[in-house]
Write a protein that binds this DNA or RNA. Structure first.
Lengths: 352, 352
DNA sequence: GTGAAAGCGCTAACAC
DNA sequence: GTGTTAGCGCTTTCAC
């Protein structure tokens, strides 16, 4: 395979020598083909193939002061919702010639661990999944050189200055809740997502919107705290079981907490949708094959990942529309399966 | 924040100037503190903090000919099994000072996409999850300079030369099947994992081991083809439903295909474990909260990710035991939940 | 359209 | 122990 006797990986010099041109010309032929004559380009192309040359990214990064790499920060990689997004992120980034680095928070300085990636020239931009974890700690101003955060897919409310790509959480939550109302339910509760400093997030707001518009009361004891995890759903199930006066339907901030709730309550004889109707959010892979199949708001995860990545790279390359507090909102979609059912007329009559 | 008026990110020269030493000394103080006097070290430390210096990885990589980065190749990132492993991979790598790059296959040359990462000096080593996708295409010899593959968590059978970190798939599969046998089942089938070139994989082998030892027949029409996906499980469900003579229990190559199977067959009135007992493999997060809660072989996913990463880095740094066809096998564990039940005596009596 | 030369920030010989 | 020097492989003026 290796053409020359030297076992080193070929450099641009090797290509240049073989093509009978200078290294500068090879560089140009590769990154700006139009600046080079046809014959030269052909010679270089041949030489590249013959030598098996691949660019040394480290050298390029050093010289160009850019890593051609984006950093993806995920709070909880095990979450199936995020892991699916990752797929489209990596795909889009690869297509555009960017590498994808993954970061976990390690250590206890919430600022430093992200910052280091940039100051050490390892990444040019940041894709932050789920704002709750880090947003408050991000260095100011957020858009300082080399730190271009792009937040996506959070249901928290983000104050300006950050570039966002997200689903229409509030409208989606309202749609989900309305589905319950349309089915005749009036006694409706909510398993909440993460609340930052007790502030309502977008999905809670959407839930409230729907309830208010329908003239339905929002009962505090039917508002279950949560954090998008399955155990939060299990906890909500416990609280539900302890209730003397129970709702007949629940809007869950995401599918995982819904699954936790279902699992716990079913173990205590509560049947869904016979005894309780549930709508979730996300439409994770398993939603369709759970029992019962989950009614849920589908987020366009592939689009989310693709658009966020494309936008970030556009910003990095200076081709983004503006780069100033961009806000791209993608629509969600109600997927009706079997975890919701009309409230039986009998129960409706007696006010249950 | 920025101490000097220049807005550039500080270099090692800035630190040197501030500490009143040479750049070489700063470099030494940082990477080999024992080679430098106490007082110098103190001055350098102070200067680093004052300037907010962070090393430029691109420059370091260029100079050292190593990227301090590992590449993780995952065939299907959406799979909850893999995404959980990723978490421990990133954690361990970060602890050891390595970055984690994620790769997806893009384009159609199965060799090139991985190779490029190394020849371009972007990654020093490879963590290959699931061998089926790429192993046959990996360049030979596999352990050529700069290409140190480490394969983990595949249930395929890998011929030597690769470094493996994996679960005891064969023994685990045998254990799972034995659990079914212990419950009185004799009519047992299997939803297969990926078969490479029709060769039995380790889990199929383990299934066969258990059946053979128990003197039970392995029926071809109860061996359902699969690929670890949920739809494969759904397909298996269809085949099962079409059977005139059905097994009473199934060992599923993984939890996801088990879930697909459950979902499809339940929609047709088959109740688990009343009508069929099922054991899976993996113990994915949702296994506990599925309905019924899944009996399954737990893989030590965190350990898998941690050990694989640690081993890879050990190899890269030359501190691994050998680096020659290493094979680390981690134990799996039977988790009994509710998807399996003893075969009712009545059905047993009539040979069902 | 192409080449020569400089330099990105770092580390490793080699002096002292 | 510490400084000086060279050079990793690339891109980019600046000449021609």
């Amino acid at each position: 395979m290796s053409p020359s006797s030297a076992s080193k990986t070929p450099t641009i010099q090797d290509v240049a020598r073989r093509a009978g041109v200078s290294a500068a010309t090879v560089s140009r032929a590769l990154s700006a083909p139009e600046k080079v004559s046809d014959s030269t380009r052909a010679k270089v192309t041949e030489a590249v193939e013959a030598t098996g040359y691949a660019i040394n990214q480290a050298a390029r990064s050093l010289r160009m002061r850019e890593a051609r790499t984006i950093l993806v920060a995920i709070p909880n990689m095990g979450n199936p919702f995020y892991s699916t997004i990752m797929d489209s992120v990596v795909r889009e980034a690869t297509l555009r010639g960017y590498g994808v680095l993954v970061a976990n928070r390690v250590g206890n300085d919430p600022t430093q661990w992200l910052r280091d990636y940039f100051s050490s020239n390892r990444a040019d931009g940041l894709l932050l999944f789920d704002a709750s974890l880090e947003l408050g700690h991000l260095p100011e101003p957020p858009r300082q050189k080399g730190l271009l955060p792009l937040v996506l897919s959070c249901d928290e409310i983000i104050d300006g200055g950050f570039n966002l790509v997200m689903t229409d959480n509030r409208a989606g939550a309202e749609r989900a809740t309305r589905h319950l109302i349309d089915q005749g339910h009036t006694r409706i509760g909510h398993i909440c997502g993460r609340l930052v400093h007790q502030f309502p997030n977008e999905r809670l707001l959407g839930f409230q919107d729907a309830m208010r518009k329908a003239g339905l009361p929002i009962r505090q004891d039917w508002l279950f705290p949560g954090d998008h995890s399955m155990v939060a759903g299990v906890d909500a199930g416990d609280r539900f079981l302890a209730l003397s006066d129970r709702p007949t339907a629940l809007f869950c901030a995401n599918d995982e907490s819904m699954i936790g709730f279902l699992s716990r309550t079913r173990a205590h004889g509560i049947e869904c949708p016979r005894d309780i109707s549930l709508v979730g959010f996300d439409d994770i892979n398993i939603a369709e094959n759970y029992w019962p199949p989950l009614t849920t708001m589908r987020q366009p995860r592939n689009e989310l990942g693709r658009v966020a990545t494309a936008t970030l790279i556009d910003i990095l390359e200076g081709t983004a529309p503006s780069g100033e507090g961009l806000r791209i909102v993608l629509p969600s979609e109600l997927i009706v399966r079997s975890s919701t059912a009309p409230l039986p007329a009998t129960r409706q009559a007696v006010g249950l």
